[in-house]
């Protein structure tokens, strides 16, 4: 019964990534290599982030929200953006269209994030006899994270790869990318600064990720139009 629950949670956590890969044209163009490379870049970024966190952050015993520390954490969080930049611009895989490249990178990024942050707790926790909603919520969070990663990759590819984009949209693109990149800090603030419970935070994440994805999609298609 508990193995069953683990299986369910794993489907929820990792299923959407596989579905995304197989349902979209990504599978047809064999972009798996790009995704794996993006995942490896994520691993490297995570390592750098860990080193930075360990170097600059004080360890606080209490779960209180310290604005200065959180600011530092948010700044360190921007290393993610640097990693994504590297993955998008420096990785030269077989020439796949920009359209597919950012999706492949975002997918690899999100999958690596899920594996790194959620697989171990899931394996250890969801197999236990004790039932909690946590692992289902965590799976939903992984879904939101997938949407956010792909949005960020889309905005990144707009910023760094596309040369001829409408001038008026540039500040909006940067603003959106900034918001998406600071999402982890925002949720951390909600959880610890305002003391929101996990279900509420996950609900917020899902909602905001959908809104941001919609905006990014609109921006992307707006940029697509003049070029095509």
């Amino acid at each position: 019964m508990t193995m069953f629950h683990f299986f369910n949670c794993a489907i929820l956590t990792f299923g959407p990534h596989a579905v995304y890969y197989s349902a979209t044209p990504l599978s047809e163009y064999d972009t798996l290599g790009t995704s794996i490379k993006a995942a490896l870049v994520y691993l490297g970024t995570a390592l750098v982030k860990l080193v930075c966190l360990a170097t600059f952050l004080k360890v606080s015993d209490n779960e209180a929200f310290d604005p200065y520390q959180e600011l530092l954490k948010a700044l360190i969080g921007f290393i993610d953006v640097a990693g994504l930049y590297f993955a998008l611009t420096q990785l030269t895989h077989r020439n796949i269209s920009q359209n597919h490249k950012f999706q492949a990178v975002g997918l690899g990024w999100a999958f690596a994030d899920s594996v790194l942050h959620r697989l171990a707790p899931l394996w250890v926790g969801a197999r236990g006899l004790e039932f909690t909603w946590d692992y289902i919520l965590q799976g939903l969070e992984a879904n939101a994270n997938l949407v956010l990663s792909i949005s960020l990759a889309a905005l990144g590819s707009l910023m760094w790869l596309r040369k001829n984009k409408p001038k008026t949209l540039i500040p909006i693109i940067y603003l959106c990318a900034g918001i998406v990149a600071t999402m982890p800090s925002i949720t951390s603030y909600l959880r610890r600064g305002l003391g929101w419970h996990f279900p509420k935070v996950v609900g917020f994440e899902l909602l905001s990720s959908l809104i941001l994805a919609f905006i990014s999609w609109q921006l992307f298609s707006a940029c697509q139009r003049p070029s095509s």
Binding site: F4, N8, I11, V19, A23, F131
Partner: peptide, 24 residues
């Protein structure tokens, strides 16, 4: 331990399966 029932797990599987199919 607070445990979930098998029915709940089955239902969850059903919901998740349909979610993935709809997503696909």
């Amino acid at each position: 331990y607070q445990v979930a029932s098998v029915t709940f797990d089955l239902l969850l599987l059903l919901v998740l399966g349909s979610y993935l199919i709809v997503l696909f």
